[in-house]
């Protein structure tokens, strides 16, 4: 499989990239890790005339803590989030999720920004970002704006990143108190897209009452889905069995999976229910491990 012809530019600054993007408009695509785009080009499902490679732009790959936020540059590779001890302090969920994304070689190149900007509900990171209540920074020729994750995913391969814009940073609020998070997906074999995946983030007060719950679901909805009723079922409780069972039940009811080779709708709802329960328990366990 071989892509059709295109022109290639690798600008050395973000401004230059934005200008090129503006000039080429619809005919251009951005190349980050390339591990979603290039396979589509090889299949000739995508045939851009111009490819703008962001890999030569300095300053887009970093992990840092600033103003109570964990900030991740959009070009940060999945492997860096997987291996970062700094992230793991508050967010062991990154090691959970990264391990299940494709394979080590792909994670060496695939970027967090690309994973989100691809706008694919089958990708795993969107659910994690929903659970962590992230926001993303988007740059355009007119400047930068920040979009909450709930306003980011529009539809099939469609996000808040508009024509002429580039996603530059992911911001995740750092919990101040006791917290825990976890991700798991059921997959047909390692590296597969999820049959169903669940990301859970929980925060607790000193009495052990859940003060904040974030639950994101992978590949069971046309867009990455926040399990709103499930979250509500947990907040204000000490996560007793009933609360967890309700949250799991709501998640299975509120998702909207489609039937495919991975399973029918009933099966996927069943998976979501089972994995939601497991991940709430795992996140809770992590929160109270010390």
């Amino acid at each position: 499989m071989i892509p059709s012809t295109f022109d290639y530019t690798a600008p050395s600054s973000l401004d230059e990239a934005l200008k090129l993007l503006h000039d080429f408009g619809d005919d251009a695509k951005i190349l980050a890790g390339g591990h979603s785009l290039i396979p589509m080009m090889k299949l000739r499902f995508a045939e851009p005339e111009h490819l703008i490679d962001l890999n030569n732009i300095p300053g887009l790959s970093y992990l840092k803590i600033e103003g109570g936020m964990f900030k991740i540059g959009a070009m940060t590779r999945e492997v860096e989030t997987e291996e970062s001890a700094e992230i793991a302090v508050h967010f062991p969920i990154f090691a959970d999720v990264a391990k299940l994304i494709a394979d080590p070689q792909v994670r060496n190149f695939g970027t967090l920004g690309g994973n989100l900007a691809h706008g694919d509900a089958a990708n795993d990171q969107p659910a994690v970002m929903l659970a962590l209540d992230a926001s993303v920074e988007i740059a355009g020729l007119d400047g930068r704006r920040t979009v909450g994750i709930d306003d980011f995913f529009y539809g099939f391969y469609s996000t808040a990143v508009q024509e002429g814009e580039i996603l530059t940073e992911i911001l995740i609020p750092i919990p101040s108190g006791r917290s825990g998070n976890a991700y798991h997906k059921v997959e047909r074999k390692v590296g597969d897209y999820a049959t169903g995946g669940v990301a859970v983030h929980l925060e607790f007060d000193e009495q052990g009452i859940c003060t904040k719950a974030g639950i994101g679901l992978t590949n069971v909805n046309p867009t990455p889905l926040r399990a709103v009723r499930s979250e509500a079922a947990l907040v204000g409780t000490s996560l007793d069995d009933d609360a967890i069972a309700s949250a799991a039940q709501y998640a299975s009811e509120d998702c909207n999976p489609s039937s495919d080779l991975r399973g029918d709708i009933d099966y996927k709802r069943h998976i979501i229910k089972a994995v939601t329960k497991k991940m709430i328990n795992k996140a809770k366990q992590r929160a109270f491990k010390n």
Partner: peptide, 12 residues
């Protein structure tokens, strides 16, 4: 870094 060279362009 290990990489899958079927999914990377020579220009990259």
């Amino acid at each position: 870094k290990s990489a899958k060279s079927c999914t990377i362009l020579a220009v990259q």
